[in-house]
Design a protein around this nucleic acid. Sequence first.
RNA 1: CGGGGCGUAGCACAGCCUGGUAGUGCGCUCGGUUUGGGACCGAGAGGCCGCAAGUUCGAAUCUUGCCGCCCCGACCA
Length: 490
Amino acid sequence: MSKGLPKRSENYSEWYNEIVKRADLAENSAVRGCMVIKPYGFAIWEKMQRALDDMFKATGHQNAYFPLFVPKSFLEKEEEHAEGFAKECAVVTHYRLKANPDGKGLVVDPTAKLEEELIVRPTSETVIWNAYRNWIQSWRDLPLLINQWCNIVRWEMRTRLFLRTTEFLWQEGHTAHATEKEAVEETERMLGVYADFAENWMAMPVVQGLKTPSERFAGAIETYCIEAMMQDGKALQSGTSHFLGQNFAKAFDVKFVNKENQQDFPWATSWGVSTRLMGALIMAHSDDNGLVLPPKLAPIQVVIVPIHKSEEDLATISGTVMPIVEELKAAGISVKYDDDDKQRSGWKFAEYELRGVPVRLGIGMRDIENGMIEVARRDTLTKESRAIGGVAAYIKDLLDEIQANIYKKALDFREANTFIIDTWEQFKEQIELGGFLLAHWDGTAETEENIKDETKATIRCIPLNSVEESGKCVYSGKESAKRVIFARAY
RNA sequence: CGGGGCGUAGCACAGCCUGGUAGUGCGCUCGGUUUGGGACCGAGAGGCCGCAAGUUCGAAUCUUGCCGCCCCGACCA
């Protein structure tokens, strides 16, 4: 049992914060709302980045990099986009400081005021589409499939490590297509990539769906999203993919000559996932002993802890362990043999559990005499004794089993907390207990807003796989053709 | 920007009501005993008690002002 970790069931946010801190993932920085990602947390993020990047490349995308600063005039060009982001922008107004003439320190030099203010990018559609004007001339230049890994700034009122920080890391894909159909296909393809990543790498089941107009990305025609359920029954939007129509092409006057030799505006998509996925990963799987990492994203997949009294014993154990380490490494498994003598083995057990290492091997003199080694699973917290010979091969399979089991656990949880709701009474009762509520909605923003005001529940999405089923809106009683997902969200 | 709370050792906090030697736990350093689930004993280091002014013989404690942080709302990937 971990010392002092709050219970998940008692105080979910405190539990989350403690895991982030104790597993050494991140901390608040001195800069308001900003986060320091620590080496262990960053190692997990790097694994996510690599897997996603490979998936982007496999679907034909290339990486590029665009500027951090957006001239204010760019942001103004697409009206809805401008309106949507205006409230949360960091603005650069000056380019120089000078010594304070009235005392110590520095002051902004009033003579160094910028002609035009620069916005620290809250997203890069505008800078990128401004560049695309020169990149796109002919249908032969399309599709243009670009991704950028970068940081962005959104001046949020309240922040939480990983889930919502003023500055965050993300990737943003920005594509241009000759036809609407192609762009819609791209939007859906990338949503599928995100769902694939969430489920197969993060072991986190997600619902793919469409956002309602009120939840749409500013400037988009349609916003697709993946929604995951956290262990407190709240929803977390984990990734979005937007069909932007010709809005940005028109705003930035990007035109191409099509096969019919006519001028046309290209069709756009944009899609992104952020360090928020780290928050999702933590909240989706962790328990009262700390972080639980899916093997595919664990920086250390297997840790080996020697249990010894003397130097001689340690040397004997190391002699037995090294061939196992080599065998695991040869199988592509990241393994750490922790023979550091500064901590006791019991301390190490707890520490690696806190950090979510999927498999721990414990070995002492008693085991060596019996030719055995102890294999402990992080996901089930079970231990078993195995013969040393063949343990490496066993672990290779075990890691796959753990990956699958973590996914199944999360899926079972989501299913157990997804409810078909038909009456407003049921709705109000269930929303207090958490979970996804599948209910009919009359399709109006007014009803959506009223439900939000009365229950704090929002429509997370209209699931892509939802079946046509006539019914009555849970709030207004008006006709409805399908159920949508309501939940409280992060 | 509204409502609530808190600033005391690296961290978590007690002390404040009722003014009088600045404390506890964790962590850290050293020594010893330990070592199969976050060891124990002993010794030690570490403080402008958020900042400023006031009341007082005397302020961590009372008063006023300021600053900072956290939580709850509005905002949001």
